[in-house]
Computed example of a mutant assay.
Amino acid sequence: MQVEDHAVWERGFPVKYLLVREDEEGEERFWGRCAGVEGMFVDKVPPPREVLTLRGCTPVGRLRDVLSPAGDATGLLGDVCIEVWDEQRPVQWWNLLDTVVIAHQPSRIDPALVDVIVGAAVEEEEPWSRALPASPRFELFAGTTAAAAPAGRCLSVDGLFVSREDPPRTPLELIGCEAAEPLLAVLRQPHKWERDWMRMWALDRNGRVMYHHNVDLGITGARPSVLGSTLVDITLTDGGDDRPSLIARSIWETWYQGAPTTPNQWAPYTAQGRAEWLDLTAAGMNGQGPDRTGGVHHLDGRFVTDVPGLHCAMAEALVGPGGYFGREWNAFKDCLNGGFGVAAPFTLIWHDADIARQALAEITSDPDKGLSYFEDIVQLLERYGVTVVLQ
Results as ranks from 00 to 15, higher is better:
L318V: 10
L348R: 05
Y384E: 06
A356E: 02
D196L: 15
W193F: 15
R153D: 10
G71N: 01
G294M: 07
K44W: 09
P367A: 13
G78S: 06
C154P: 07
S229P: 00
S372F: 13
D242I: 03
E362A: 15
M1T: 11
T254Y: 08
D366E: 06
L174I: 06
R357Q: 15
P182G: 01
I109V: 14
G75M: 11
G239V: 11
A112G: 08
I82H: 05
D65F: 03
E4R: 09
T254R: 09
L246T: 12
H212W: 15
L203I: 13
G341I: 10
E375G: 14
H104F: 13
R292I: 12
S245R: 13
E27Q: 14
A103V: 01
P290F: 13
P268Q: 04
R274Y: 03
P48F: 03
A344M: 10
R89G: 02
P168T: 11
V37R: 05
M210H: 03
G159K: 05
L155K: 10
V118N: 07
L54P: 07
Q92N: 09
W277N: 00
T58H: 05
V232R: 15
P150G: 08
D354R: 04
G295A: 03
P244L: 07
Q272T: 12
W252Q: 10
W252I: 06
A259E: 08
S365H: 08
M285V: 07
P171H: 02
V307R: 00
A70M: 08
F303L: 01
P69I: 04
